[in-house]
Computed example of a mutant assay.
Amino acid sequence: MIIIDGSEGEGGGQILRNACALSLITGQPFRITNIRGKREKPGLMRQHLMAVTAACTIGNASCDGLELGSTAIEFRPGAIRGGDYRFAVGSAGSTGLVLQTVLMPLLAADAPSRLVLEGGTHNMAAPPFDFIERCFLPVLARMGATVGVRLVRHGFYPRGGGVVEVEIVPARLRAVACVDRGALVAVSATALFAGLPHGIAERELRAARPLLDWPEAAFGVRQLPEEQGPGNALMLEARFEHGAEIVTGFGKLGLSAESLAKTAAQRMAGYLRADAFAGPYLADQLLLPFALAGEGAFTTVKPSQHSLTAADIIARFTGRRTVFAYRAGGGVLVEVR
């Protein structure tokens, strides 16, 4: 039984999600205490509860302490089974974080799977659908995975109501090196909004333009059906020969359109100045598949506490080390050994 203190490292839900995925794949049970111990509201929230429930469902696992607000659970994995699954997170709980929990195990399942995920698709503190589709999954495809995703309906905080469909074909992941992102191919800045004044999106783009110095044609507004709102997100995308990065700013009460756009544009400008394949959020997500492939390497910007914590959890279940080596020209080379 692997014992985990959920308040260690970054102390959030990623520890729990990675532990569930690794437990199913390696067959090792675990107990975690102090779940999300460093968050303002510790314990299992709705999206974390659904992530563990989904892991139990696809992996015939049993779990003690699985209830809203719980700060400790004991998880015992069973056999992973492919099939058709529907998981409703409820409200705007992140569909992306539930997918993050079950994707790697289902790639190791005995048959293909089809998922329908209901909840939030564009949430703060979670990877939006576009990031998963255009930044993360292309790397998995290079590793030999076939994963198809479709956004049926957007879901913003706090209403949610989004729907995502996912098709997964089991595959053995192969090691790859993602060191060079290649030449810049295209850039875009899209202000999504639903059920809100059009002027909010225009103000976001107006504030982002001088900080990015992109062509005028790269900036655009996308209005979604009013019933999918209220919601707003500014999505900045840079596509390279060998990869992509998407930086997202999410609208919320009390945050001006100008402030949102400035923060997102500065983050994207910082990434463009760097010479790294993966941004900080993509780096977090690549650690698990790279470890399951047995080895691999990628470059990133300064590693986040999320990445360092994920590397520790991976080592406990697999014994594989993640080495973060700072490069002379800036950035970090991440190697899984």
Rank of each mutant, 00 (worst) to 15 (best):
R321D: 01
V166I: 11
G231S: 08
T71C: 08
L16C: 00
P170N: 13
R316H: 01
A315Q: 03
A325T: 07
Q223R: 14
P280W: 13
G199Q: 13
G148V: 06
F324W: 01
A269I: 10
L211M: 09
P42C: 03
A79G: 05
G331N: 04
A269N: 10
G162R: 12
N34C: 07
Y326M: 09
L103C: 04
G11H: 08
A276N: 09
T263H: 13
P77L: 02
P230V: 10
I200V: 11
A274N: 06
F219T: 02
A54Y: 07
H48W: 14
G279I: 12
R36N: 10
Q100T: 08
L140Q: 02
E295F: 05
L97A: 02
T71E: 08
G251E: 05
W214N: 07
R239T: 07
G69C: 07
G296E: 13
I80N: 06
F324A: 11
L282N: 08
T101N: 04
F240W: 08
A171Q: 04
R174T: 15
A92H: 11
S91W: 07
F298T: 11
F290A: 11
R321H: 00
I80Y: 13
T121C: 10
A145E: 01
A328Y: 01
A315E: 05
R321F: 00
C178Y: 00
L68N: 13
C135G: 02
I2F: 07
E227N: 05
E8T: 14
T248G: 11
R31W: 01
L192R: 14
H154S: 12
R172C: 15
V301A: 11
V169G: 03
T53I: 03
E167D: 15
V336K: 04
V163S: 11
V332L: 03
G13R: 00
I4A: 03
A126D: 03
P77S: 05
E202N: 11
Y326I: 05
Q100W: 00
A328S: 09
H198A: 15
K41I: 12
G296A: 06
A92Y: 14
P127F: 13
P158R: 13
L287W: 15
A92N: 04
A218H: 03
F129N: 06
A108S: 12
R321V: 03
L255W: 13
T322E: 01
A183E: 09
G93N: 12
A311I: 01
R273G: 14
L282G: 06
S307G: 07
T309L: 01
C178E: 10
L107P: 00
Y85L: 02
T190F: 06
G243F: 08
P210K: 14
R142V: 10
A265D: 07
A257Q: 14
I35P: 00
P138E: 01
C178K: 11
L117C: 10
P77W: 02
R142A: 15
